[in-house]
């Protein structure tokens, strides 16, 4: 099992998704995984950099891997799927165009630092069995559905994690936390992503569909592992309600928060109170 990983929070976890960052740190502390900061880490480049110049974008993300390597670490964990993709792209571009890549990066790089998501860390390195054993406050009689979004398992050859169309890793982790997991067909449907800024009606429709399905299968809450998905589903839930004349009231928690709660970490540390949709009902025993 991994004991020590480099931690790349990415920009979201410093702002909008600060509670994701808090819950990851708290959970890893409790699970005995040391998160080593990457000194002077920089933006992964997100969407704009690789749209402008793929090589530059890859080198931008690659710099973080190179720093991690210089710290003697060979695994970088990031909570954000978009950052994860950027970090993986760096390794791939390095394999395809090594000399150009090194030219742009301007520091030593050997492509041997692996990037993983926090979900992958929990599922593959720790495993649902261990988590189940550690659970102190299981979510009894609650139904929680996992929402994976588009990037965590796709494209399959790139992500190399779980089933691309019907992933189950989060399902198993939620079950370990004691909640029931109904079959949730929309677990990888698009939430609208960044279109919330430019074409809000699209996000209203797509996010509305996901919430509608979650309600239909009787979910008490949704579990996510992506800051942008969380933002669309949680922060915009009120907008969706107004746009679609609905009255969704579904809490949307990070998977780290759910496991953290089950393990007995206090809710304030996990940043639960920062969520837009109130979670009180979820924590009342039925």
């Amino acid at each position: 099992m991994l004991k020590r990983v480099a931690y790349y929070p990415g920009c979201s976890c410093e702002g909008m998704a600060i509670e994701y960052d808090q819950s990851v740190r708290a959970l890893c502390y409790v699970l005995g995984i040391e998160l080593v900061g990457i000194p002077d880490w920089n933006c992964c480049g997100s969407t704009p950099s690789h749209s402008y110049d793929p090589l530059l974008g890859a080198a931008l993300a690659g710099r973080n891997l190179a720093i991690a390597r210089s710290q003697g670490l060979d695994v970088v964990m990031t909570p954000c799927p978009s950052c994860l993709k950027a970090l993986k792209t760096a390794n791939q571009v390095f394999r395809e165009r090594p000399s150009e890549f090194l030219d742009v990066l301007g520091m030593p790089f050997s492509g041997d630092v692996r990037a993983i998501s926090v979900l992958q860390l929990l599922y593959e390195e720790i495993g649902p069995n261990l988590i189940q054993k550690a659970v102190k406050f299981p979510f009894k009689n609650k139904k929680i559905v996992p929402y994976y979004g588009c990037l965590l398992t796709r494209p399959p050859a790139f992500a190399q994690f779980d089933d691309p169309e019907n992933p189950v890793s989060m399902d198993r982790l939620i079950e370990a936390a004691g909640a029931a997991v109904p079959d949730f067909p929309h677990k990888t449907e698009c939430c609208g992503a960044a279109l919330g800024i430019t074409q809000r009606d699209v996000v209203m429709r797509l996010t509305g569909r996901i919430l509608d399905m979650a309600r239909a299968v009787g979910a008490d809450a949704l579990a996510v592992a992506c800051p942008l998905c969380q933002q669309n589903l949680d922060l915009r839930q009120d907008q969706v309600n107004r746009a679609l004349k609905e009255n969704f009231n579904l809490p949307v928690l990070y998977i780290t928060q759910i496991i953290g709660c089950a393990l007995g970490i206090d809710r304030k540390t996990l940043g639960i109170e920062k969520l837009a949709v109130k979670t009180d009902a979820l924590f009342q025993s039925a």
Partner: peptide, 9 residues
């Protein structure tokens, strides 16, 4: 093999 079609489920 195609998770999105739900064959078997």
């Amino acid at each position: 093999v195609y998770g999105e079609y739900g064959g078997g489920r």
